[in-house]
Each structure stands twice: as C-alpha cells, then as structure tokens.
Amino acid sequence: MGATVAAVSSNATYSFTKPTRESVTLLTGLGVEGDVHAGTKVKHRFRVAQDPDQPNLRQVHLMHEELFDELAKDGFTVAPGELGENVTTRGIDLLGLPTGALLHLGDEAVLEITGLRNPCRQIDDYQAGLMKKVVGRDASGTVFYKAGVMSVVRRGGEVRPGDAIGVVLPEGPHRPLRTV
C-alpha cells in the first residue's frame, strides 16, 4: 500500500488543535481555505511579531500518523489535528524528504515542502512532557524535530482522507529540511 492522506484538519480561529474534516480545499499560494494560517504572508503569531511581511512558508502543516503510534508507546494519546496539522499522512517519510519535494495529494493538489515544523511550547500545555518527544537531541547531540513538515500550495484542489500521495523529488543535490 502506498502513501495516503489519513486525515485533514482546519480551524478558522487560533487554537492549538484543529478539528478533522471530511475534506479541505487547498488554495494555490495561500493554504487551506478557511484556515487561520492561510495567506501569502506569515500567519503564525510568533513570526508575525518578528516580521509580519515574511512570506508564508507554513501554509499547510503535514504530520505523519506514525508519530502518534510512537508517542502512544510513551503514554501519550494524540489523534489527527490535535498537534495543529492540516494533513495527517500514513506511509510516507515526511521528515526524510528534501526541501522542494512536491507532494501530489489526490487528483489535483500539489504541495511543495519548505521545511521542518519548529513547534512551540504550547505542545507541553497540550500534554506535559510532549515537547521532549518531538524536539530533542539524539545520542550524538544533534537536534531532531519530529513534529511534521511545512509546505506551500503550488496547485490547489480538494483533499480527503484516503487520497493517495505521490512524491516528486527535486533535481540536483537535495537540501535537507531545516526549520521554517
């Protein structure tokens, strides 16, 4: 079985979690229709405070459902949308993709991966201790981020749970993901 969309989520107001939906519509160059983080300029509160004119490289947040399985082994219960992602995936190594990879979701939508999600401390407000499970240092001291990837919408379209996900890697040397 190939990579699929496990769930889709959106929220019109600032909230840590996003309710799951039957479908979401991705709008070219903007993000998820009706979602608080949609737009050409940055929408995340921390980044707006730094510079409201930054381009929005975080239009659509994707997270791999396998992370929820991993967290469950440590006693955390997390479901799609609860960590603020718009698209929950299954069967794709999101964190291993290079910058610029294209994800084809369903029949029409195309996302371009811009980088890793750098989660905020609200994760610990949601469930105490969760931040250490999604951001930390490995045995060699290298920082790791597991809270998904960010993307921009290159081609809009409707996305539903069960939609197939296709990956197109960029040409040339691949650039590893960095936080955006």
Results as ranks from 00 to 15, higher is better:
Asp124His: 02
His104Val: 11
Thr25Pro: 05
Arg121Val: 05
Glu65Phe: 09
Asp124Tyr: 04
Leu30Trp: 09
His64Trp: 07
Val143Phe: 08
Leu130Met: 10
Glu108Tyr: 11
Phe76Ser: 12
Thr40Tyr: 09
Asn11Cys: 15
Asn86Thr: 11
Thr99Tyr: 14
Ile123Ser: 01
Asp93Val: 08
Gly162Cys: 04
Arg117Thr: 14
Leu169His: 07
Ala128Gln: 05
Pro170Thr: 09
Gln59Glu: 10
Ser10Tyr: 09
Gln59Val: 12
Gly91Met: 12
Tyr126Ile: 00
Pro55Gln: 04
Gly157Met: 05
Glu85Trp: 10
Thr142Ser: 04
Leu30Lys: 13
His174Pro: 06
Gly166His: 02
Val168Lys: 15
Val32Ser: 04
Met131Cys: 00
Val168Met: 09
Arg175Thr: 14
His44Ile: 08
Ile123Asp: 00
Leu169Cys: 06
Gly100Thr: 06
Glu65Ile: 12
Pro98Gly: 10
Pro161Val: 04
Met63Ser: 10
Gln50His: 12
Gly106Ile: 13
Leu57Asp: 08
Leu67Pro: 05
Glu22Thr: 10
Gly157Phe: 04
Ala101Val: 11
Cys120Ala: 02
Gly166Cys: 02
Ile123Thr: 14
Arg160His: 03
Thr20Leu: 03
Gly34Cys: 13
Val167Ser: 03
Lys18Phe: 08
Val32Gly: 03
Gln127Trp: 06
Ser151Tyr: 01
Ile165Ser: 03
Arg155His: 05
Arg175His: 08
Met63Glu: 15
Ser151Arg: 01
Ala128Asn: 01
Arg58His: 07
Thr17Leu: 05
Ala3Ser: 15
Leu130Val: 00
Thr40Phe: 12
Pro98His: 13
Pro55Arg: 07
Arg90Ile: 11
Val149Cys: 01
Leu169Arg: 09
Ile123Cys: 00
Ser151Gln: 00
Val8Cys: 07
Gly81Thr: 11
Gly148Gln: 02
Leu177Gln: 12
Glu66Lys: 11
Leu27Gln: 15
Gly141Thr: 02
His37Thr: 11
Arg160Gly: 01
Thr77Arg: 14
Val152Glu: 02
Asn56Gly: 08
Glu171Asp: 15
His64Phe: 01
Gly115Glu: 04
Leu27Glu: 15
Val168Gly: 00
Gly156Val: 02
His44Gly: 07
Val87Arg: 03
Asp124Trp: 03
Asn56Trp: 09
Gln127Lys: 14
Ala128Gly: 00
Tyr126Glu: 01
Asn118Tyr: 01
Gly96Val: 13
Leu26Thr: 10
Thr77Lys: 12
His104Tyr: 07
Met150Cys: 00
Gly31Phe: 12
Leu97Asn: 11
Gly162His: 08
Lys43Gln: 15
Ala38Glu: 14
Phe16Leu: 14
Pro19Gly: 04
Thr142Lys: 11
Thr179Glu: 13
Gly162Leu: 08
Leu116Ser: 03
Gly162Ala: 09
Thr20Trp: 02
Ala6Pro: 02
